[in-house]
Nucleic acid binder design. Structure first.
Lengths: 213, 213
DNA sequence: TCCTTGCTAGTCAAGTTTGACTACGCGATT
DNA sequence: AATCGCGTAGTCAAACTTGACTAGCAAGGA
């Protein structure tokens, strides 16, 4: 699963109704073009595809006052909202090595209730620990580590990064349980989208984490 | 950059001459289908594409004795070998968040000389540290971390995993400098491919790291 | 003998991603 | 008055990825 659907659904959902360029701008505001495949082509493709699949409703709209081609506005459907929560829960629990899906999930975590967020993150930690146990048991060669040579370093790296991921997740759980952030049903939600006309402080000059996908 | 080209070039290079199924088997032996997109379609596509681009030379070959369709054997060209080393160096130095490229790079690291391997890994550590410094400086909001709410957790996660990656890389550098493994020009190389008829001990039953791409 | 299973080797259509490109209008500059 | 660049909004072809599918042969069992 790539992060694009979750990101686009989430962006449309926060606006209620949005056109592609608005979504594209939100994702840029979140820095998503840095850590995920949120490029124009992918965003517009995802919008069209999800409209075709009934997750979004497309409205043709008169050309904007600001010039440019006619826009299409999208509205999330009930099935789209369901899909959003399905993807969100999966992004938080499943142990993808890919950062992009987890990053998107963290970005929308406050759309869940606090208790569920904690429970999903605990599930994540358990998944990582389970994976670690099975992989170290399974890939440890009977005739000593020399028999697989430097290839063992690949597993070593996986395990190292799994441990780091588990540790970070435990920290996040602790912060959430200590009352950090505002979750669904706890009053004024955190506003994660740009208001119209608001400048995007992170639009450019953001450091590039290398070749991140 | 996805890891597939590096993996396929490296596999063909180790054999001297190989057909698609052989490459596919090597990659499975390395567990690459677990941590990269090394699926049949991608492998055959990469072979054809790189043949078209002059990185590989395609030879039509009579149908194998073991039955099945006629095979195509591939041989690496000089330009292909150059490309292999270019991709390999990039995989070790560039700070991709993606594990797949780095994993492939580690798998082929012994095709370099020991000194260069160490120097590339040092470059990697420097890149991570540079990225960390610039990102923490740039994304730290002037009006306190509350102003970006839970979105700060995304950056927190990046930084956490960058730190873990740097630490692991330093460990690897230390092991290599202490004399571990056999690098290019140091005698009998480590054999990382299956000999004909050798059974693949990791063919099935390998734990799945979640939804890894 | 016929049938099923499994291995070898690869193809294919559908979907996704990429990066470059188009087209429009406005304000500022020559 | 022409045009240059910028922001808006989106399209497109080419490349890549995915997962299911084909097809030939051999070994083994009923």
């Amino acid at each position: 699963m790539s992060a694009i659907r979750l990101l686009v659904l989430g962006a449309v959902r926060q606006h209620g109704r949005a056109h592609g360029y608005q979504v594209r701008n939100d994702l840029e505001y979140w820095g998503a073009h840095e850590w995920s495949n949120a490029k124009p082509g992918s965003i517009y493709h995802a919008l069209k595809q999800m409209a075709k699949q009934g997750l979004l409703l497309a409205h043709e709209v008169a050309p904007s006052t600001a010039g440019g081609p006619p826009r299409t506005e999208y509205e999330i459907t009930d099935r789209g909202a369901q899909e959003f929560f399905t993807l969100l829960r999966a992004s938080l629990t499943s142990y993808d090595q890919g950062v992009d899906v987890l990053s998107a999930g963290i970005g929308f975590i406050v759309d869940l209730e606090r208790a569920e967020a904690v429970s999903l993150l605990r599930e994540r930690v358990a998944a990582i620990e389970g994976w670690r146990a099975s992989v170290t048991e399974h890939y440890t060669p009977a005739d000593g580590p020399e028999s697989i040579g430097h290839i063992g370093e690949i597993m070593n790296m996986w395990v190292h990064s799994a441990d780091a991921g588990a540790e970070w997740t435990r920290g996040l759980i602790a912060r959430i349980e200590a009352g950090a952030y505002t979750f669904a049903g706890e009053g004024e939600p955190f506003v994660g989208v740009l208001s119209l006309g608001q400048e995007n402080p992170y639009a450019t000059g953001v450091p590039d984490p290398g070749d991140a996908h």
